[in-house]
């Protein structure tokens, strides 16, 4: 899909969908940006599935893309090919892009390769969230085994400025138990932001994290090359979501979160 600026408003300029991946285009709430809500009508992701999303924000466009629900990735057999979920975001000059899918829940035994490739034009601003929960923690499940590979690349005006590669393979819970990994945590998120006023925004995010920090959830943020990078580690999906929502609140000032995030 692509968004374009028309006068003071942003409108959808091109839209195609196929397979079980659909998007709705709700009328924005007061104070919110235009946008789309992505929906997987298959209800979840099985091994061998392949989903891809491509979004373009043309010059000056301002829009939020979120997802209707948490994405669930089912258990795979050991010889199954991992599921693939790819997203490509083209953020044009002076555009404002928000990519706010909900968390991905990996069932025990799930295998997922995910990639997010972002290109930022001159003067563009963005806010990205990628959140993952290892096991259905709400019912006490942990992801004992499986595979998760996550790849985030951010190019600014053609130069690679950030590359994040998460690799968790094999005995996932045992790796997550390790002190420098997650010390037993079962949920992680990255929030990445670019825009005006870097250090002030970084400090605002750190303050929000500090206010929300408690047993079972921790977070940090750092600004480099004009990108605000952050990581959150939490004991379960619920604690992760509280911290992510606190972080998004600090970065989005008073704009309301997409309704799908409000719970």
């Amino acid at each position: 899909m692509s968004f374009a600026r028309r006068g003071a408003l942003t409108e959808i300029a091109r839209f195609e969908q196929q397979g079980s991946l659909r998007a709705r285009l709700p009328r924005p709430e007061r104070g919110a940006l235009a946008g789309a809500v992505v929906l997987n009508t298959a209800g979840g992701i099985a091994s061998g599935d392949r989903f891809s999303t491509s979004v373009t924000w043309r010059e000056g466009a301002e829009a939020t893309v979120s997802a209707a629900a948490a994405e669930r990735v089912y258990r795979a057999r050991d010889d199954d090919r991992p599921a693939r979920v790819d997203a490509t975001l083209e953020i044009g000059p002076d555009a404002l892009a928000e990519w706010l899918p909900q968390e991905t829940i990996l069932f025990d035994g799930a295998r997922l390769d995910r990639s997010l490739s972002v290109s930022l034009g001159r003067g563009a601003s963005m806010l990205l969230v990628e959140a993952v929960v290892f096991g259905r923690t709400a019912r006490g499940e942990r992801m004992l085994h499986g595979q998760f590979r996550d790849r985030i690349d951010i190019h600014r005006e053609g130069t690679l400025v950030h590359a994040d590669r998460i690799r968790l393979e094999g005995s996932v819970a045992a790796i997550l138990d390790r002190a420098a990994v997650a010390r037993g945590g079962a949920a992680i998120a990255s929030i990445i932001w670019a825009g005006e006023g870097g250090e002030i925004v970084r400090d605002r995010l750190r303050e929000a994290f500090a206010r929300e920090a408690r047993e079972g959830v921790e977070a940090g943020a750092s600004l480099r090359d004009g990108l605000l990078l952050s990581r959150i580690v939490a004991a379960d999906g619920a604690a992760l979501r509280r911290m992510v929502v606190a972080g998004l609140g600090a970065l989005r000032q008073n704009r309301p979160l997409p309704r799908v995030w409000q719970c």
Partner: peptide, 10 residues
Amino acid sequence: GGACFRADIA
């Protein structure tokens, strides 16, 4: 790539 999230936070 890796998974040392808490070392990053440190």
